[in-house]
Each structure stands twice: as structure tokens, then as C-alpha cells.
Design a protein around this nucleic acid. Structure first.
Lengths: 238, 238
DNA sequence: CGCGCGATTTTGTGATCACATAGCAGCATG
DNA sequence: CATGCTGCTATGTGATCACAAAATCGCGCG
């Protein structure tokens, strides 16, 4: 098993979270950042060994990720990252567009100057990461940017749904990104920030939707290249 | 293809599903149909005893339901049906509207005469259940109707998200329904069916949105009555 | 040298156990 | 009689074990 599948040990001995929550967080991040190969076989014991825990927390974390559709439970009873198809990808993007546009619009009343400042800071991280071709930071900061905005109203019912969509797209997003450069011809985040400052909800919706479609458009065509689909019947190891 | 939500939840000895999947299906149905009191404390051992299984499958099922936001993991590490608030309810309905309207529109190209016939049959069940004040059948058939439509294109990424929303609303939907009668002044399902026959996507969107808002409108106000919010501090056992 | 086919290993599932903590009741004390 | 403390019980969490099914590998056959 690849030992670097899940990096970043963040769980100290005094972590109040349960072990399975820590495992879940690490696996989630690995999936979102595309560190787990779509065809790769995920085994409970293997992950447990990698993470230095017993099988139990891993089992529970995997169940949770299956429920979030980040992983798929096959007939074999094995879990894997579900293969991508054109239709599914199209669905995921469409769902992102309607959910995130609505979530952004509904967050508008709760937008404060402080939030805008934090979003600007996050956007700076994104731009820096893009310049440095640091995909991990780019994806992570990008997600933070969106989540920060949608969560402005406090806990929102939208956020978990959107997170599920990101987790489903993540593995393929990164793979497609590797083959591209400078995909963002227009900085949609700047447009979104401008709309926020003007309290222009409609412009915000448009900016968010454009952001999603822009960042994803080329990827859709890239995905068509069959090796992207993760259809590897039974990939093994890293 | 009624989803597993309404599929037969009980499994015989030759049920190919794993135990935790059967437990999950039964719990899911119980939640959707509002059989579990919002404040009620759900204990692993209690549920295991009720269902005649060991603790393990119950644990995994509960995790999965927590991931779907049907249940909530409290700081006590106990799980319960999350209490409803006005804000959350509003969020859930808004998410349903945008997701289901889009899902319906995207299903349109795949709508066949056979599907319409099945939808009509399901609608008949709904009407019969309403006349008989059979809330279990009503909720179940209602979900089937929607799921059948959204799933017309085969497995859709929308369906799991929508299912999560129904599960979050379910417990309170039923409670509010008890206090009402004849909430459907207009049969939105008939409007939706008519739109389907005409292949009128926009009319379909409108009908679906109206269906959601109609069925829920009074409930929103009913929810305000504090005892609906599930703020019951600590119910006990199953 | 290719191809089935059976033995071995791996893996998921479910059950049980050990432990720490939260909940709760009963008792003692002011 | 109210209140705080103490012990017991209930509960969640994590580990380990047993078992069946699946996957893998290696041997033998054509």
C-alpha cells in the first residue's frame, strides 16, 4: 500500500475527535485532492496499516464516504472511487451550478466586510497556488473559498450537499488539471467579490456559475480521453 | 426502480445484501416515514436489540445516516434526529426546489410512455393514500413518484442529494401532516404529468416547484409551534 | 508455451470483548 | 428539604477474532 496515500498527520494525542473522525478527515482530503487513484483498490486493512490504526475506524470512515458518494461500494463489497462517465460528470456539474448559485445567493444577506476580506485572502492563496502550479493548495483554497461563502449564514443545509459533489469531482479534477495550464482566463472569483461588495445577488450567481463552468469546461473534454475515466477494471497498488 | 428507500426493507435469510445494508434500509424508512421521534435518543445496543442483530451493523448504518445528515452526531457522541429550525427548514426546501426542478428538467429527454404510465400509477397510490389518511403510504408513494422521475435517465447524481433532503425533512413532515387535512388543493402531480406528456420542460419545472412548495407551505408555519422543533432535550431508548 | 483449475492468501463482514466516559440514581450532608 | 457527591449503570469507541467469499498465485495439463 502506498504509504503517502494520506499525508499530513494532524491528529495529536489530545485530539478530541474520535479516531474514525480523524481517519475520515484525512481520507476526505486525500480524495478531494486527487491523491487516490480512481481505479485503485482501497482495502480496510491496508488503509488501517497506512494510518496506524485498527480496522474499525477505517471501516466507519469508508462507510461514511460511501454515503457521501465519494466512494462506491461494488458488488464485490469492495470500495473504490467510482469511475467517471460523461453523463455523471455532466450531472455533477449541473448539480454544482444550481446548488452553489442558490447557496451563494442565500448567503448574501450574511456577507460582512470581514467575510469579504477573508475571501480576498483566500483568493490570493488561490492565485499564488496557480502561479506556483501547486495543485494541492489550489484545490484546497478553492474549496475553502466556496465553502466560506456558502457557510456565511452559519451551518447551511447546502454545504454538505456541495461537499459531496466536490468529493465526487475531486479525483478527476486534479488529473485533468495536470494536463492543462492557465485554465482561468478570467478571474471569476474577482467578479464574485465585486458582486459581493455591491450586494448584487444576480451578478454573484452569474460569477459563481461562470466560475464552475470555466474551471470545468476543458476538463469535460479532457475526461473523454478514456484513460481518465477510471475504468481500470481492477487497478492495484499505486 | 423505486429506490431502496421504499423497497422492501426486511430481508429474508437469502437476502444478498449485507446486514448493515438491511439495517440501513429499515432505519432510513423509519426516518423518512417519521417513525422516529426527533428528540429520541438512538442507542446502538437498543436498535440492535430491536432489529435482532449485533451492534456492528447498526453502528455502520448509523454512520451512514449521519453522513447523509438524516442523523446528527452530538458532542455526547450520541446520535439523534437533528432538531429543526426555521432557517434549516427554509434551506432544505430551497435546496429541494433547485435540485428537483433541475433533476426533473434533465430527466425529460429520457421520459417514455412507460415511465409516464408508471408515474400515473404511483400518483393513483398517492391519491388513494391521501383519501385514506394513510400517511405511510402517502409519503412513500410520494417519494417514489419523485424518485422515479428523477431517475429516468438511470443513475443520476441528483438522486442521492435529493434523498438526503427528504430524509432530513421526513421526520417533521409527518408530524406536521398529522395536524392537517387536504393540504393539496391543487394536484401538482397531475400538472407535472401533463407537462411530461407535452414534453414541456418549463411547465414541468414549475409543477415540481409548486408541488414542493405547496406540500410544505403550511408545514413551515406549523413548525413554528415550538414542540415541532424536536428540541426535546433527551428522549430515551427505542 | 498457453490455459484452466485448485490451493492459498487476502479481504469484508459480523460478533464479541475491554475500556473510558457520560448519564443517573441514591445517599449523605448542610 | 434542598443540594452536592459518590457509586453504579448504560453507552460509545476501538481492538480482536472467526468465518465465508473473493482474489491471487502456482501448478499441472493440453
Amino acid at each position: 500500500m502506498a504509504t503517502d496515500l494520506v499525508a499530513e498527520a494532524q491528529g495529536g494525542a489530545d485530539d478530541p475527535r474520535t479516531l474514525h473522525q480523524q481517519v475520515l478527515a484525512r481520507l476526505r482530503q486525500s480524495i478531494l485532492l486527487g491523491r487516490i487513484e480512481p481505479g485503485q483498490a482501497l482495502t480496510i486493512r491496508g488503509l488501517a496499516a497506512d494510518l496506524g490504526v485498527s480496522a474499525m475506524p477505517v471501516r466507519e470512515a469508508l462507510r461514511q464516504l460511501v454515503a457521501e458518494r465519494a466512494l462506491e461500494l461494488m458488488d464485490n463489497r469492495r470500495v473504490r472511487i467510482p469511475p467517471m462517465t460523461i453523463e455523471r460528470f455532466d450531472d455533477l456539474i449541473a448539480a454544482r451550478v444550481v446548488l452553489e448559485a442558490e447557496a451563494a445567493a442565500r448567503a448574501m444577506p450574511y456577507v460582512t466586510e470581514g467575510l469579504i476580506a477573508r475571501l480576498e485572502a483566500e483568493d490570493a492563496v488561490i492565485n499564488a497556488a496557480e502561479a506556483a502550479r501547486d495543485y494541492d493548495s489550489w484545490i484546497g483554497a478553492n474549496f475553502s473559498f466556496h465553502a466560506m461563502l456558502y457557510g456565511a449564514a452559519g451551518q447551511s443545509a447546502f454545504l454538505p450537499l456541495i461537499e459531496s459533489l466536490w468529493l465526487q469531482i475531486g479525483p478527476f479534477l486534479r488529473r485533468a488539471m495536470r494536463t492543462l495550464a492557465g485554465h482561468y482566463t478570467v478571474d471569476r472569483h474577482s467578479e464574485a467579490l465585486a458582486a459581493l461588495r455591491r450586494r448584487d445577488t444576480m451578478a454573484l450567481r452569474i460569477a459563481i456559475e461562470a466560475d464552475i463552468r470555466d474551471g470545468i469546461a476543458h476538463i469535460g473534454s479532457t475526461l473523454i480521453r478514456s484513460d481518465m475515466l477510471g475504468k481500470v477494471p481492477e487497478g492495484n497498488m499505486a
